[in-house]
Design a protein around this nucleic acid. Sequence first.
DNA 1: AATGGGACCTGCGCGC
DNA 2: TGCGCGCAGGTCCCAT
Length: 266
Amino acid sequence: MPELPEVETIRRELEEVILNKTITEVKINNSKVIKEPKPKDFAKSLTGVRIRGVSRKGKLLILDLSSGKFLAIHLRMTGQLIYPGDALASRVSFRLSNKKWLDFNNSRLLGELRLVDDWKELKFIKQLGVEPFNLSPVRFKDMLASRKSKIKTLLLDQKFISGIGNIYAAEVLFHARIHPERLARSLSSQEQKALLSAIKMVLKKAIRYKGSSVDDYVQVSGDVGEYSRYHQVYSRAKKPCFVCKTPIQRFSLGGRGTYFCPKCQK
DNA sequence: AATGGGACCTGCGCGC
DNA sequence: TGCGCGCAGGTCCCAT
């Protein structure tokens, strides 16, 4: 699942390969992923436009275009951006001035492309919580103070904090030694600090290793991300904890697979 | 405010 | 072997 580290990896690689190139053609193989405007207008408005910036907000990628508009790309679970692509198996492909294709793949068709005048007006953006790397311990403490929900649920809430998904929620809670069902406001001061440190540490390391390739995620180059090798709990049900050998447990929390070590996490 | 459910989707692994 | 089923999860939306 593309979460913050995966989307940031893609952003950095895109910046290297598509920045300042012009889109010369838009090929739409499945218009379902184009949410706005209408596919025909989408293609027309993007043709002849230069890409002058690639940024990320949470799990959302934003291409800054010379037309003054922005292309917002949400990969959801199965989205990929591949360069150079072949425009064959993609949902939408962008032909660039060097004649190579940038492919937007999305096997489950849940991804979204939106060409908008102002990305700041997107509902998703308006509601988006703080970027984890910008979060101070004092502010984090404040954010947790009155919250009655379970800590893992809260970490997954993009309005609370942006960029964490199911993999990294599990991983950071393991590193902070906190049980996923603990109520947010019940965390001690020490646990709050441990959790924030774990969030920053895990996300940074995951970026360094170019993300976690589980399911469909690959880098723009098509290479896998190596952080999966460092997963402590995610997708490790019944396997021994690397710290204490206790079998990792899995249960469903809010409809999501939730992994933790019953001995290490309290 | 929080929680639980369904909806959107398709590919995969499982059991029979 | 082949088929049907449940599951995977990011986000939105609705009901309670």
